[in-house]
Design a binder for these strands. Structure first.
Length: 810
RNA sequence: GCGGAUAUGGCGGAAUCGGCAGACGCGACGGAUUUAGGAUCCGUUGGGAAACCGUGCAGGUUCAAGUCCUGUUAUCCGCACCA
């Protein structure tokens, strides 16, 4: 088969027949199958793209043949750092390199033969898209979900930009591995924390990998504890957050984060120099140092004291950077006897350690951090764990000193980026009116082309006079634009909605169009997005719902993560390993179908694994066999006379229906490797039957026809060609996916494993309709059983229908 | 440290509810065809001479365990001073 030729041929015919497009007029149930869109940082599709898109397209085609009206769009996540970094290195403008990459990738994606609905294509870097990304920002702003504040941010000195927490890996920049430092900047945030509770509880109802849901749960990090108010001797009030209020009588000092608003205020004159030095050094400490839990705790005494709200005891107030300003209240009560960190700190600085919890039925060695029996705590003595916490929290609350409180580790999402290649933030800063949103009618705020994007610590746009200078929409006075761009994750937080109405120029999408297609039924992409894209997209959906633009709570009903294809050496593919396998040469040599089929067959889809050349040769051989046998059977003259139907025919029909049943199940479950294995079995059965002298031509032809239909989603071009050769009407993808005939799957006899005392002694065929007692009797009559029965009686007999019979004798 | 996952032949990987471990394929071996090689086709292929032994390791439950329970090791992934 000339693969090149037939690929071109069918791709053209499919396009002409609009076979790949969602049918907006159809009454068939919709099915939105979505792959995470491509990031055009490299010039070409890599194996990862293929592995994501190829098998998933087979799933989509399978569903289409099952009668669903499938929508499978594709687009490009085109803004972002890599294009800009590439530009800085080579001088090629990000717009030019991105557009060129997209063009190449579009060609390659089309050559895959996937049924992407290109009429809904989107590119996030185009005005027609980012106009609405900016619109999203304005809606969030209106809703109070976008706000500005000065905050310590992760700053990459090499990329010269702020990074989201998620983009910091081991204290280093995810992209360039430079050490990340902290820096104070005024930045835009999205209030994702407002949805913390719903983002957490919503997970329970999602058909997502458990692992991913758990990662989101941990990331959101709900914790139930207690806030307690302390007052200083000078009358200042501050609160601490604790999950262990049962240890409150063991507090011997309190600690504020160095960034705490009261830090300097509480510092006494004699301590000022030391405290200032400490605050400065803490702000300089880079993430690596701060993150290391093995690092020795440091801190400084402020000179002030707080009053214990329950005992009135005098407690020294320290600053220490083991307390995080951004979590809880930025202050903690220290209980060295029952917290490892406090214990280490107290030991180092010679602070008192007071035991107030005892281990139940055992020796208490400090620090003792498990639940235990409360001691030395007034009327609460004797209470245990949760019971003690409830009682003490109630007491604190009654005294007006705080009470139970839920906290989340999730932080608000920092979306400002001091970079060029992104959607400009649609805000105008006016000296008189402050931050003023750009009126919607003025969108988009265009990203200028002629910009100096080489980094110098400032936003590239800040240096573009024409861009920056504008007028305040409120007072009309001269004003400046916000020089920052939006994190690219903002663009990808709503693209699945835009697909539904990609060419709308009056709104981001039509409510009706979205209602028709959303939510996404099956979403397929890499697991690396668990706590970023997948969380942000959920947040957007919920926020848009609350603004009345949508009517559903979750964007992605079912989520599947494909695994990672490693290099042949078992390492992740990378330039430095020199183990990159390019799809192109294989697609050239074996064809797009063989390449896709190998990806489906050679790996467990969600696991991935090392690439292996031999596997693809085996698949090419399989396709050759398929072609040969299909063409051979197609040439048989249809029989006029009655056809034989005996054991052999029954076996073939069984194989055929068994394959239909199993392939259907496996395709649904993304278990592509076993689906292909079942196809191979059916091919073997067909081939074996074809070798017989006497055969039932009608049955053989019908079986081959079903085979081609089953194969079609996995090898679309080959199947379409064979379908034509078989004389099939229309496209193979207009056919109904075969449905098994249950009658053909009922066998007269089944093979049983016969066990005596749980050891297999032989195998035997028993009637499928036989009662347990009949099987027991038949088993007892077997020579292999009788041999082992001499002088013994059956004590128990276990029959597992269709599988085994186990005789317990003694 | 916390959370999650994985561990099965020479290799990739299969095994519904606990029910014949190793489907399917690769590789290897043998045969047919061929001057030869390649390609193709047909067999055999977990180990062991056998009894038997075999799903990381040690126990346990069960008529029966890759699957359930307890402990343990290794690898991978995520989080990491979150009070």
């Amino acid at each position: 088969m000339d693969m090149k030729k037939i690929e071109k041929k069918w791709q053209l015919l499919w396009e002409k027949a609009k076979l790949n497009s969602f049918d907006r007029k159809s009454d068939a149930p919709k099915l939105y199958v979505l792959e995470m869109f491509s990031y055009p940082s490299g010039a070409k599709l890599h194996i990862g793209h293929w592995y994501n898109y190829g098998p998933t397209d087979s799933y989509a085609r399978f569903k289409k043949m099952q009668g669903y009206n499938v929508f499978q769009p594709m687009g490009f996540d085109a803004f972002g750092l890599p294009a800009e970094n590439y530009a800085i290195k080579t001088g090629v403008h990000p717009k030019d390199s991105t557009e060129k990459n997209i063009q190449t990738m579009e060609g390659q994606l089309k050559a895959m033969g996937a049924m992407f609905d290109w009429s809904a294509e989107i590119k996030t870097c185009e005005e027609s898209y980012y106009k609405w990304t900016q619109w999203m920002f304005l809606q969030l702003y209106k809703k109070g979900l976008a706000y500005r504040k000065e905050a310590p941010v992760n700053w990459c000195p090499s990329c010269q930009t702020v990074l989201a927490n998620e983009q910091v890996v081991d204290g280093r920049c995810e992209r360039c591995s430079s050490e990340v430092v902290r820096r104070d900047l005024t930045q835009w945030f999205f209030r994702i924390t407002a949805y913390a509770e719903e983002l957490l509880s919503g997970l329970d109802r999602l058909d997502w990998p458990e692992k991913t849901k758990n990662m989101q749960r941990n990331w959101i990090g709900r914790s139930t504890g207690c806030e307690i108010e302390f007052e200083t001797e000078s009358g200042e009030k501050f609160r601490v957050y604790t999950t262990r209020c049962d240890t409150v009588f063991g507090v011997t000092y309190v600690v504020l984060a160095p960034e705490h608003p009261l830090a300097r205020k509480l510092t006494t004159a004699d301590r000022e120099a030391e405290v200032d030095a400490y605050i400065l050094s803490a702000s300089k400490a880079n993430e690596i140092e701060r993150l290391s839990s093995a690092r020795e705790k440091t801190g400084v005494f402020t000179g002030s004291y707080a009053i214990h709200p329950l005992t009135g005891k005098r407690l020294p107030i320290y600053l220490a950077d083991y307390v995080l300003a951004s979590y809880g209240t930025g202050a903690v009560m220290a209980v060295p006897a029952h917290d490892e960190r406090d214990f280490a700190f107290a030991t180092k600085y010679g602070l008192p350690i007071e035991k107030v919890i005892e281990k139940r039925g055992g020796e208490t060695t400090l620090p003792f951090t498990e639940d235990g029996i409360v001691r030395g705590s007034l009327e609460f003595d004797g209470l245990f764990g949760e019971e003690a916490r409830d009682a003490i929290a109630a007491y604190i609350s009654k005294k007006g000193k705080g009470g139970k409180k839920v906290n989340y580790r999730l932080r608000d999402w920092l979306v400002s980026r001091q970079r060029y290649w992104g959607a400009p933030i649609p805000i105008i800063h006016c000296e008189r009116c402050g931050a003023v949103p750009v009126p919607e009618k003025d969108l988009p705020v265009r990203l200028p082309y002629d910009v100096e994007f080489r980094p110098d610590g400032k936003s590239p746009l800040a240096k573009h006079e024409k861009f920056m200078h504008t007028f305040c929409p409120q007072c009309g006075g001269p004003a400046l634009r916000d020089p920052d761009t939006l994190d690219t994750f903002v663009c990808s937080s709503w693209y699945y909605l835009r697909y539904a109405d990609a060419n709308n120029d009056r709104a981001p999408f039509d409510r009706e169009a979205v209602d028709r297609l959303l939510p996404v039924d099956t979403y397929v992409g890499g697991a690396e997005h668990a706590c970023m894209h997948l969380l942000y997209a959920r947040f957007f959906t919920k926020a848009l719902r609350d603004m009345g633009y949508l009517d559903f709570d979750e964007p992605f009903k079912r989520l599947v993560h494909q695994g990672v294809i490693l290099g042949p050496d078992g390492n992740r593919m990378s330039k430095s390993h020199g183990n990159i396998v390019s799809p192109d040469e294989y697609v050239n040599e074996y064809g797009a179908d063989a390449f896709r089929l190998y990806l489906m067959f050679g790996f467990s889809y969600t696991e991935g694994g090392p690439w292996n050349d031999d596997g693809i040769k085996a698949i090419a051989k399989f396709l050759d066999r398929v072609e040969k046998i299909v063409l051979k059977v197609a040439d048989y003259r249809a029989a006029r006379e009655a056809q034989p139907y005996g054991q052999e025919e029954k076996a073939l029909d069984y194989a055929r229906n068994f394959a239909i049943q199993r392939v259907t199940k496996d395709m649904e479950a993304f278990s592509f490797n076993t689906a292909i294995a079942r196809l191979m079995e059916l091919l073997n059965a067909i081939s074996k039957y074809d070798g017989l002298a006497q055969k039932n031509i009608s049955l053989l032809k019908a079986t081959v026809k079903d085979f081609v239909l089953l194969l079609a989603p996995c090898a679309p071009h080959v199947a379409e060609e064979l379908w034509e050769k078989l004389g099939g009407k229309g496209f193979v993808f207009e056919q109904k996916y075969p449905v098994e005939d249950p009658a053909a799957l009922i066998l007269d006899e089944k093979e049983y494993a016969v066990q005596v005392n749980s050891k297999i002694v032989c195998k035997a065929m028993f009637s499928a309709t036989a009662a347990d007692s009949e099987i027991e009797a038949a088993a007892l009559a077997l020579p292999a059983v009788r041999e082992r029965m001499e002088g013994k009686t059956v004590k128990k007999c276990i029959v597992v229908a269709g599988r085994l019979v186990n005789l317990i004798v003694g």
